[in-house]
Amino acid sequence: MTYKLILNGKTLKGETTTEAVDAATAEKIFKQYANDNGVDGEWTYDDATKTFTVTE
C-alpha cells in the first residue's frame, strides 16, 4: 500500500510517499525520514487517506 507523509516543519515543508505492508511499517519509515531531516513534532494519522502528518 502507498502511504503519504505531510511535513509541516519549521524549516522543512512538503510531502513524500512510501510503499509499506502496513501503517506501522510506514510510520517507522516516515519517523526516520523526519528525524533525518530535523523535523520533530506532533504526529497524526488518517486511516481513511493513509496519510501521516507531522507538525512542529
Results as ranks from 00 to 15, higher is better:
30 F>L: 05
12 L>W: 13
25 T>I: 08
54 V>F: 05
44 T>E: 10
9 G>R: 05
19 E>Y: 15
1 M>I: 15
34 A>P: 00
9 G>W: 05
51 T>S: 05
11 T>H: 12
31 K>R: 13
42 E>R: 08
46 D>I: 05
28 K>W: 09
17 T>R: 08
45 Y>M: 02
29 I>V: 12
49 T>I: 08
37 N>G: 05
27 E>Y: 15
38 G>S: 08
24 A>N: 09
53 T>Q: 07
36 D>L: 12
56 E>S: 09
34 A>L: 09
6 I>K: 06
27 E>N: 06
15 E>Y: 12
16 T>I: 14
48 A>Q: 10
12 L>T: 11
2 T>E: 08
9 G>T: 14
55 T>A: 06
10 K>S: 10
14 G>S: 14
37 N>I: 15
35 N>T: 13
44 T>R: 08
44 T>I: 09
4 K>M: 07
45 Y>E: 00
51 T>R: 03
50 K>Y: 11
22 D>Y: 04
50 K>D: 03
53 T>Y: 13
5 L>T: 01
34 A>W: 03
18 T>G: 03
14 G>K: 13
54 V>K: 01
7 L>Q: 03
1 M>H: 14
2 T>K: 12
22 D>H: 04
43 W>V: 02
50 K>P: 00
15 E>V: 13
55 T>M: 08
30 F>Y: 02
33 Y>V: 06
34 A>Y: 03
16 T>N: 05
49 T>Y: 05
8 N>F: 11
16 T>R: 13
16 T>A: 13
42 E>K: 10
36 D>I: 10
30 F>N: 00
34 A>Q: 02
44 T>L: 07
10 K>Y: 11
49 T>F: 05
23 A>F: 09
10 K>A: 12
51 T>K: 03
19 E>H: 14
42 E>H: 15
28 K>R: 13
51 T>A: 04
12 L>I: 14
37 N>V: 15
39 V>D: 02
54 V>A: 03
10 K>P: 10
37 N>W: 15
45 Y>D: 00
46 D>W: 04
6 I>F: 07
29 I>M: 07
53 T>M: 09
2 T>Q: 11
36 D>Y: 09
12 L>S: 07
35 N>D: 11
19 E>N: 13
45 Y>P: 00
26 A>E: 00
36 D>P: 02
19 E>S: 10
23 A>H: 11
56 E>I: 08
49 T>K: 08
40 D>P: 04
19 E>T: 14
13 K>P: 05
15 E>W: 14
16 T>F: 15
4 K>Y: 13
39 V>K: 03
47 D>Q: 11
32 Q>L: 09
29 I>Q: 07
35 N>K: 15
3 Y>E: 01
48 A>P: 08
15 E>T: 11
35 N>F: 15
25 T>V: 09
37 N>Y: 14
39 V>L: 11
31 K>I: 08
29 I>A: 07
23 A>Q: 11
3 Y>S: 01
39 V>S: 03
13 K>A: 08
12 L>Y: 13
20 A>N: 04
24 A>D: 10
24 A>M: 12
15 E>F: 14
6 I>A: 04
34 A>I: 06
48 A>E: 12
56 E>L: 06
17 T>M: 10
22 D>A: 03
4 K>G: 04
14 G>V: 15
49 T>D: 05
16 T>S: 09
39 V>F: 11
42 E>L: 12
12 L>K: 12
15 E>I: 13
45 Y>W: 05
44 T>Q: 10
32 Q>H: 08
13 K>H: 12
53 T>V: 09
39 V>G: 03
14 G>W: 15
5 L>M: 05
19 E>V: 15
7 L>P: 01
21 V>H: 09
52 F>I: 01
9 G>Q: 04
54 V>D: 01
42 E>A: 10
12 L>R: 11
7 L>N: 02
16 T>Y: 14
23 A>M: 13
47 D>I: 10
18 T>V: 15
33 Y>L: 06
5 L>A: 02
36 D>V: 08
23 A>G: 05
37 N>L: 15
46 D>R: 04
7 L>D: 01
2 T>D: 07
20 A>R: 02
25 T>D: 13
24 A>F: 10
35 N>P: 02
35 N>I: 14
34 A>H: 01
42 E>M: 11
23 A>T: 11
35 N>Q: 15
23 A>I: 11
15 E>G: 06
53 T>A: 05
17 T>Y: 15
5 L>V: 04
7 L>M: 14
42 E>I: 15
25 T>R: 06
44 T>A: 13
22 D>S: 07
12 L>P: 04
38 G>L: 06
21 V>F: 13
1 M>T: 15
47 D>W: 08
19 E>P: 06
53 T>P: 00
45 Y>A: 01
15 E>R: 07
9 G>Y: 06
48 A>W: 11
46 D>S: 06
26 A>I: 02
2 T>M: 11
33 Y>S: 02
41 G>H: 02
51 T>V: 07
34 A>K: 01
41 G>R: 01
3 Y>H: 04
34 A>T: 06
48 A>T: 12
46 D>H: 07
4 K>V: 12
42 E>P: 05
25 T>Y: 08
18 T>P: 01
44 T>W: 09
24 A>I: 09
14 G>Q: 14
21 V>M: 12
40 D>R: 14
52 F>L: 01
27 E>P: 00
27 E>Q: 13
17 T>H: 10
29 I>P: 01
35 N>W: 14
11 T>R: 09
51 T>L: 04
29 I>H: 09
6 I>G: 02
20 A>Y: 03
17 T>P: 02
38 G>Q: 08
27 E>I: 08
2 T>H: 10
9 G>F: 13
56 E>Q: 10
24 A>L: 12
21 V>K: 13
45 Y>S: 01
